[in-house]
Design a protein around this nucleic acid. Sequence first.
DNA 1: GATTTCCGTGATACCTTCTCACTCATGGAG
DNA 2: CTCCATGAGTGAGAAGGTATCACGGAAATC
Lengths: 208, 208
Amino acid sequence: MEDATSPRARYRAQVRTEIKEHAWRQIAGAGASALSLNAIAKNMGMTGPALYRYFGSRDDLLTELVTDAYRSLADTFRAASGEGLTGLGHALRGWALADPQRYFLVYGTPVPGYHAPDDVTAIAAEIMAVLLDACATGPAPAPAPDLDAHLAGHRAWDGGHGASEPVLRRALTAWTRLHGVLSLELAGHFTGMGFDPVLLFDAELSAL
Amino acid sequence: MEDATSPRARYRAQVRTEIKEHAWRQIAGAGASALSLNAIAKNMGMTGPALYRYFGSRDDLLTELVTDAYRSLADTFRAASGEGLTGLGHALRGWALADPQRYFLVYGTPVPGYHAPDDVTAIAAEIMAVLLDACATGPAPAPAPDLDAHLAGHRAWDGGHGASEPVLRRALTAWTRLHGVLSLELAGHFTGMGFDPVLLFDAELSAL
DNA sequence: GATTTCCGTGATACCTTCTCACTCATGGAG
DNA sequence: CTCCATGAGTGAGAAGGTATCACGGAAATC
């Protein structure tokens, strides 16, 4: 009855993935704001309303793409989890450069009203866990007593990882610094400046 | 004839600024993607097409808002230019928190096809000049020979400032690190984590 | 006072998301 | 094998968006 390999279900799953493939192509080309259900339907030889059999709304489709993007980043992180913080940094940059709009779907400008579903917070916690593991081994960063003391009382986000406060701080710092370089690079703010962003990224990475 | 204080010109300028005020209100509330000429016109007691007398298109209006945002940031930076890098950092954070969507208009997710006009590159250069001034005085950062050697050959973006390579690197690092913390904070990526982002921001600022 | 300039409107074309009634093919049950 | 219910897809249409156009009228200018 509810067999997952029912012909109907298989067809449905295939169409869903095909819709998402077209959606990713649109997003990679012109950003998330250019995602158009009508255009996807036309590209697939269907009419617009047909897509509402597969996704409840444009926002539902976009939310699923965001979740997939988070999952993709989590997979990339997990695959590079054995290579330390440096390996994690390079994996992050490679993942971001492979599809900048996908990076922006995760870390870009949020829509004020939008609330991420519980899925992505769980995946974000998994990403943070990998980052915390990588930050546990390595040199202790410069001391920051104020922040460490504050983190000691506000460390629920470590998900029971049990890392020391300097490790928590190192993870946060790695996150924000790498995102800082990467997001400005992907947004094109370095394009007119002439230098190679990878050297700046690697300098920040080795400073960690 | 072409008097700037002609009744027509004064009225026109007033309507233009009123349109922009409504536009800022919309953007602050629901982001740049929610900017609607029709809604602005309705709020002003006009019909949609009337606004095309004042702005050539929705993109033209948005471009002007982006330019105004850059100019506002440049003004804020110039006002804080005497207070060193720490003052600049606090001025940046205050400016960003006052209107997060305005920050995202400058440093947020770009639309792939969009090209910024020459205005904003000039203003961006002015912002960079203030940052370079603030980075000239202060402790020398940790050495990074590779990046410094590369910057020595790719420093056209300093606008004839004549700063040394470590100073250029300090300015770039300050920019990317502060943007890293700030953009993640404004995007709400810290909301579920419990800690106070200002402490992380200040820690990065004092590490510079 | 006559004329020109230009603001605002309504109509229109074309796009979007999204709902709804309907048709029709297909898969599963007897 | 037959019947029927499930569900995919279509066309119409509402509501709202950008943008263009011709037109009327008010206001500034001469």
